[in-house]
């Protein structure tokens, strides 16, 4: 929907009434919709989260798109194209949701290419082999789905609705990734090695996609109070480890972590220590591919400027041409 007219709610009385209704809606686990009054911090936090999510989809297209031209069978080529295309679609659904909070997509794109906005740091790792395409589908999309399914119930209506559509479409992404690995695992020795190597490299980064440990996650608490986030980082991570620990057996391969185990006492899955220093480095833009991804996004946007402008100019001309006719009629 169109940007909300946030400014119409001025004055302390209206703010107080708005806050009260907002609190009630959150308390009864109802949904906030675009034109509702909402605390500025809620609007800001959501805009940041949804746009970051959208940027991740768009930047995330690149490492996989790099393999479209080299996909080793025509069926895999078609599947990969469809998957990368879905990611563009998901980015668009999310930008739409973020736009309802009042920030136009253009502004979000500008922030991204100016390096002011973040995207998921997972896409700053290089995608070196075909098996990486499998590992990304299985582990990276798998982790993303774990994160996203609870977001379908996020308190902000447009975000939740975008996530429902995305989760529905993403179910094939994880499966196709797992199938790539399954084919490799049942293939030649070289293919098996390729698959194991990919799992070794993507395992820890995919676990770190859930964000820092709970005691070191400053935004999580507020996000949970607002019913945007439903489970803590560690909770989701543990759930994910449990799933992939089982799934890897079907591949006949292993996770590169001897400490993965189910803790009978806590009822939770545990994993070995993760290198959070590396995570912070990559997050800070020092991942090996950061500059490359940003440059490509910037280039595509700038190279496309004349096309966008031409279409807008054409629309203007058509509208002007149509206008006198309408008046006459």
């Amino acid at each position: 929907m169109a940007a909300p007219a946030a400014t119409q709610y001025g004055g302390p009385d209206i703010d107080a009434a708005g806050q009260q209704l907002f609190d009630e809606l959150i308390a009864e686990d109802s949904r906030i919709e675009p034109r509702d009054w909402m605390p500025e911090a809620y609007r800001k936090s959501l805009t940041r989260q949804i746009s970051q999510h959208a940027h991740s989809e768009i930047i995330g297209m690149q490492p996989e798109a790099n393999w479209i031209t080299r996909a080793p069978s025509l069926k895999r080529k078609a599947i990969l194209m469809a998957k990368v295309q879905d990611e563009a679609g998901h980015g668009l659904y999310l930008y739409s949701a973020a736009e309802t909070l009042g920030t136009p997509r253009d502004k979000m794109t500008e922030d991204l290419i100016a390096g002011k906005a973040r995207y998921s740091s997972i896409f700053n790792y290089p995608v070196l082999t075909w098996a990486d395409i499998g590992a990304i589908g299985w582990l990276v999309d798998g982790a993303a789905i774990c994160n996203q399914v609870p977001l379908c119930r996020a308190s902000y209506g447009p975000y939740g609705r975008a996530m429902v559509r995305i989760c529905k479409e993403e179910s094939f992404h994880q499966r196709q990734g797992f199938e790539i690995l399954l084919e490799l695992a049942n293939g030649t020795q070289a293919q098996r090695d390729m698959a194991q190597d990919a799992i070794n490299r993507w395992y820890a980064p995919s676990l770190m996609m859930f964000g820092p440990p709970d005691d070191d996650s400053p935004n999580s608490k507020q996000s949970m109070a607002w019913n945007i986030k439903r489970f803590s980082n560690d909770e989701l991570r543990s759930r994910f480890v449990g799933m992939i620990a089982e799934q890897v057996k079907a591949l006949g391969l292993t996770l590169p972590d001897p400490d993965v185990r189910f803790n009978e006492d806590t009822g939770k899955w545990e994993h070995g220590p993760l290198d959070w220093e590396e995570f912070k480095e990559v997050l800070a833009g020092r991942g090996p591919c950061n500059a490359q991804r940003m440059e490509r996004r910037r280039e595509a946007h700038e190279d496309g400027a004349w096309v966008r402008e031409a279409a807008a100019a054409y629309a203007d001309k058509q509208a002007r041409r149509a206008a006198p006719a309408t008046e006459a009629a």
Binding site: I58, M61, Q62, A65, I68, T69, K77, M81, V84, Q85, A88, G91, L92, Y95, R296, E299, A300, D303, G304, A305, V307, R308
Partner: peptide
């Protein structure tokens, strides 16, 4: 296939 992730606008990707 090369255009995917490089088109002038996301809708065109």
């Amino acid at each position: 296939g090369w255009w995917i992730s490089r088109a002038p606008e996301l809708e065109e990707d």
